[in-house]
Computed example of a mutant assay.
Amino acid sequence: MMEEEELEFAEDLEAILHLTPEVQLAIEQVFPSQDPLDRSDFNAVEYINTLFPTEQSLANIDDVVSKIRLKIRRLDDNIRTVVRGQTNVGQDGRQSVGEKYPLKNM
Protein backbone atom coordinates (compact mmCIF):
# COMPACT_ATOMS: atom_id res chain seq x y z
CA MET A 1 0.00 0.00 0.00
CA MET A 2 2.78 2.43 0.94
CA GLU A 3 4.68 1.74 -2.29
CA GLU A 4 1.55 2.54 -4.33
CA GLU A 5 1.14 5.86 -2.51
CA GLU A 6 4.81 6.70 -3.05
CA LEU A 7 4.53 5.84 -6.74
CA GLU A 8 1.42 8.01 -7.11
CA PHE A 9 3.17 10.85 -5.31
CA ALA A 10 6.22 10.51 -7.58
CA GLU A 11 4.00 10.55 -10.68
CA ASP A 12 2.10 13.60 -9.42
CA LEU A 13 5.34 15.38 -8.61
CA GLU A 14 6.79 14.56 -12.02
CA ALA A 15 3.65 15.91 -13.71
CA ILE A 16 3.90 19.14 -11.73
CA LEU A 17 7.62 19.58 -12.36
CA HIS A 18 7.54 18.73 -16.07
CA LEU A 19 8.62 21.77 -18.04
CA THR A 20 7.96 22.33 -21.70
CA PRO A 21 11.05 22.25 -23.93
CA GLU A 22 10.69 26.00 -24.50
CA VAL A 23 10.73 26.74 -20.78
CA GLN A 24 13.65 24.38 -20.22
CA LEU A 25 15.62 26.10 -23.02
CA ALA A 26 14.89 29.54 -21.55
CA ILE A 27 16.11 28.41 -18.13
CA GLU A 28 19.28 26.97 -19.65
CA GLN A 29 19.94 30.24 -21.48
CA VAL A 30 19.43 32.37 -18.38
CA PHE A 31 21.21 30.01 -15.98
CA PRO A 32 23.81 28.05 -17.93
CA SER A 33 25.15 25.13 -15.92
CA GLN A 34 27.52 22.23 -16.37
CA ASP A 35 26.16 20.48 -13.28
CA PRO A 36 24.56 17.15 -14.24
CA LEU A 37 21.90 17.75 -11.56
CA ASP A 38 20.60 20.69 -13.63
CA ARG A 39 20.05 18.70 -16.80
CA SER A 40 16.49 18.09 -17.93
CA ASP A 41 17.42 14.48 -18.75
CA PHE A 42 19.07 13.88 -15.36
CA ASN A 43 19.31 10.19 -14.48
CA ALA A 44 19.92 9.52 -10.78
CA VAL A 45 21.25 6.00 -11.31
CA GLU A 46 23.81 7.16 -13.88
CA TYR A 47 24.84 10.02 -11.60
CA ILE A 48 25.37 7.72 -8.61
CA ASN A 49 27.32 5.32 -10.82
CA THR A 50 29.66 8.17 -11.83
CA LEU A 51 30.20 9.02 -8.15
CA PHE A 52 30.79 5.38 -7.22
CA PRO A 53 31.96 3.47 -10.31
CA THR A 54 33.25 0.50 -8.30
CA GLU A 55 32.52 -1.14 -4.99
CA GLN A 56 35.88 0.08 -3.71
CA SER A 57 34.87 3.68 -4.42
CA LEU A 58 32.13 3.33 -1.81
CA ALA A 59 34.90 3.74 0.75
CA ASN A 60 34.80 7.48 -0.15
CA ILE A 61 31.09 7.81 0.59
CA ASP A 62 31.70 10.06 3.62
CA ASP A 63 33.68 12.52 1.47
CA VAL A 64 30.97 12.56 -1.19
CA VAL A 65 28.23 13.09 1.38
CA SER A 66 30.23 15.97 2.93
CA LYS A 67 30.62 17.63 -0.47
CA ILE A 68 26.91 17.26 -1.19
CA ARG A 69 26.00 18.72 2.21
CA LEU A 70 28.31 21.67 1.55
CA LYS A 71 26.65 22.22 -1.82
CA ILE A 72 23.22 22.12 -0.17
CA ARG A 73 24.33 24.69 2.42
CA ARG A 74 25.61 26.99 -0.34
CA LEU A 75 22.36 26.64 -2.25
CA ASP A 76 20.35 27.37 0.90
CA ASP A 77 22.47 30.48 1.49
CA ASN A 78 21.93 31.61 -2.10
CA ILE A 79 18.18 31.06 -1.83
CA ARG A 80 18.05 33.04 1.43
CA THR A 81 19.99 35.89 -0.18
CA VAL A 82 17.64 36.03 -3.16
CA VAL A 83 14.53 35.89 -0.98
CA ARG A 84 15.84 38.67 1.26
CA GLY A 85 16.74 40.71 -1.81
CA GLN A 86 13.23 40.34 -3.19
CA THR A 87 11.76 41.34 0.17
CA ASN A 88 13.93 44.45 0.22
CA VAL A 89 12.97 45.32 -3.36
CA GLY A 90 9.30 45.31 -2.39
CA GLN A 91 9.95 47.47 0.67
CA ASP A 92 12.16 49.86 -1.32
CA GLY A 93 9.48 50.12 -4.01
CA ARG A 94 6.75 50.98 -1.50
CA GLN A 95 9.05 53.53 0.13
CA SER A 96 9.85 55.15 -3.24
CA VAL A 97 6.19 55.32 -4.19
CA GLY A 98 5.38 56.76 -0.77
CA GLU A 99 8.03 59.45 -1.17
CA LYS A 100 6.88 60.38 -4.66
CA TYR A 101 3.18 60.20 -3.90
CA PRO A 102 2.73 60.84 -0.17
CA LEU A 103 -0.65 60.08 1.32
CA LYS A 104 -2.56 63.19 2.22
CA ASN A 105 -4.24 63.34 5.58
CA MET A 106 -7.98 63.56 5.22
Rank of each mutant, 00 (worst) to 15 (best):
M1P: 12
M1V: 06
M2R: 08
M2G: 15
E3G: 12
E3W: 09
E4T: 11
E6W: 13
L7F: 08
F9Q: 12
F9S: 04
F9T: 03
A10E: 11
E11C: 07
I16C: 12
L17N: 15
L17E: 06
H18T: 13
L19S: 09
L19M: 09
P21W: 09
P21R: 02
V23T: 13
I27Y: 03
Q29W: 13
P32M: 00
S33D: 05
D35M: 02
D35K: 07
R39W: 04
S40G: 15
A44I: 02
V45W: 09
E46V: 11
Y47H: 12
I48E: 04
N49E: 08
L51N: 01
L51D: 09
F52Q: 00
Q56L: 13
Q56A: 14
S57I: 01
S57G: 00
N60V: 01
I61H: 12
K67T: 11
L70F: 09
L70T: 06
I72N: 12
I72H: 13
R73H: 15
R74T: 12
R74M: 13
L75F: 10
D77C: 08
N78C: 05
N78P: 00
I79H: 08
I79L: 14
R80E: 09
V83A: 13
V83W: 08
R84Q: 15
R84W: 07
G85H: 07
G85R: 01
Q86W: 03
T87A: 09
T87K: 08
G90Y: 06
K100W: 00
Y101E: 10
L103M: 03
L103I: 01
K104H: 03
M106W: 11
